[in-house]
Measured scan of single mutants.
Amino acid sequence: KAKLLVLLYAFVATDADTICIGYHANNSTDTVDTILEKNVAVTHSVNLLEDSHNGKLCKLKGIAPLQLGKCNITGWLLGNPECDSLLPARSWSYIVETPNSENGACYPGDLIDYEELREQLSSVSSLERFEIFPKESSWPNHTFNGVTVSCSHRGKSSFYRNLLWLTKKGDSYPKLTNSYVNNKGKEVLVLWGVHHPSSSDEQQSLYSNGNAYVSVASSNYNRRFTPEIAARPKVRDQHGRMNYYWTLLEPGDTIIFEATGNLIAPWYAFALSRGFESGIITSNASMHECNTKCQTPQGAINSNLPFQNIHPVTIGECPKYVRSTKLRMVTGLRNIPSIQYRGLFGAIAGFIEGGWTGMIDGWYGYHHQNEQGSGYAADQKSTQNAINGITNKVNSVIEKMNTQFTAVGKEFNNLEKRMENLNKKVDDGFLDIWTYNAELLVLLENERTLDFHDLNVKNLYEKVKSQLKNNAKEIGNGCFEFYHKCDNECMESVRNGTYDYPKYSEESKLNR
């Protein structure tokens, strides 16, 4: 008799109507990190870190770059004969040098303040090359056809396309004075040089004057150069050297050249137009028929994500570079809930034993079982409120962090190594801060989002509990077992918050 009662009780308990509160689960393989956990499985997430590029040089917003090819900045601007293909260059979106560009200054020497000139050019998007001192009329008392084997072109001695090597005419090199007034309405880049012979005999042979000088002056520039005559090792078949100089001439300003020898005179100059998204990159990537809004030396990035880990040097509207390998923000729920887990921000989770793959029309909802059958029903209101809140948060985070910009490298010469090392340390410090901030932001927001979901499920549970009161009992896994019969209409009233407690209280009292 006792065995019969136990079996009867078990049958009745199993047959009781139930309603459970749960949440969506799926077959997603997404994982995120939080402050407290690593690799948390979630139903949905968004990636904030771009880690792919196309490996190509592309047009930037429809404008092609200027590819210097086998030449570098120095060779292009001075007019190395091997860089003749660059003479027609007028406009570009950015400038590309190759790491091993070999054609710079063909006659050995240095372009002074080269690093600063590169910085200036990094904001130039177009130029006009014009004859600042016409070759045939500007130097009537001097020979202007100086050439050298060091600047050979097609097997013949030649010289820079933008400079003139002035030497004596006959047996004399009379003092020369020439000036140019900038009437271009924009900055003009003027380049010139000073020749330093290897011996007094060479000085006399070329310029006749043993104590020659070169003077260059404008409103913002004033220097006097004296040739340094000295024996030097042979470089590119030359014992002599040429140093090259430049200045930016403001609109309306005048530049005056005065010399008694050794002047490498300007022939062509450049009127410059600035462009905020221009820059110089060093890259071996090849040019393709493609378009982008962000270019790196590795390749083009076409992404609206706020961060990238491809390269710190970028041109155009680019994500911020960070050292992170993963920045994924959760938008959905835990896919593998932890039992009795309390989140960092106070939300209680884990009283549900598992997510439901059968509930596909919402994030949170119900599963019921009664004599009429069983089924899932999503709670659309709480789901939609959660979707709206999380979507707004993700968009806000992306908008705040998605300050796209150009980031170019800084140039230092060989004598500025300590400054370069200090600059690298400062840049590394800023990069570490950006990386830390980005990672911390994602970790915190992921923790908040998961706790937010847990709290929403808990609130749904409490909503049902407050309606049923003692007409049902909690069975410990997020479910309630009714003390009365609850048909589909009754189940719907529980879900929509209109459950009639008094209607079922007498039946429940008897069954309790």
Rank of each mutant, 00 (worst) to 15 (best):
L4R: 02
L5C: 07
H24S: 11
N27D: 14
N27C: 02
D33R: 08
I35L: 08
I35A: 11
L36G: 01
N39H: 09
N39R: 12
A41T: 11
T43C: 02
H44V: 01
S45V: 05
N47Q: 07
L48W: 08
L48E: 10
L48K: 04
E50S: 03
S52V: 13
L57G: 02
K61S: 04
K61F: 05
K61L: 03
K70T: 15
C71E: 04
T74L: 14
G75P: 02
L77T: 02
L77K: 03
L87W: 15
P88W: 00
A89R: 05
I95D: 01
E97F: 12
S101G: 15
S101E: 06
N103Y: 12
N103A: 10
G104A: 13
A105C: 11
A105G: 05
P108H: 08
I112Q: 14
I112V: 01
R118Q: 05
Q120F: 07
L121W: 07
S123N: 05
S125G: 06
S125V: 11
S125R: 13
S126M: 06
L127C: 03
L127V: 13
I132Q: 03
P134G: 03
E136V: 11
S137Q: 08
W139F: 15
P140T: 09
N141H: 08
H142W: 08
T143Q: 06
T148L: 00
T148P: 01
V149N: 06
V149K: 04
S150Y: 05
R154S: 11
G155Y: 00
S158N: 07
F159C: 08
R161T: 10
R161V: 03
L164S: 07
Y173K: 03
N178R: 06
N178H: 02
N178P: 06
S179Y: 08
N182A: 01
N183A: 07
G185K: 14
E187L: 12
E187F: 14
V188W: 03
V188Q: 03
V188T: 08
L189K: 02
V190F: 04
V194W: 10
H195N: 09
H195G: 02
H196L: 05
P197C: 11
P197N: 08
D201H: 11
E202G: 03
L206E: 08
N209T: 15
N209C: 00
Y213G: 01
S215G: 06
Y221E: 05
N222S: 03
R223W: 09
R223T: 09
R224V: 10
F225I: 14
T226G: 01
P227V: 14
R232C: 02
P233L: 15
V235Q: 11
R236Q: 09
H239K: 00
G240I: 04
Y244K: 07
W246K: 04
T247E: 07
L248F: 08
L249E: 01
E250W: 11
E250R: 14
T254C: 11
I256T: 09
N262E: 12
I264Y: 04
W267D: 00
W267G: 11
A269Y: 00
S273H: 12
R274L: 05
R274H: 13
G279I: 07
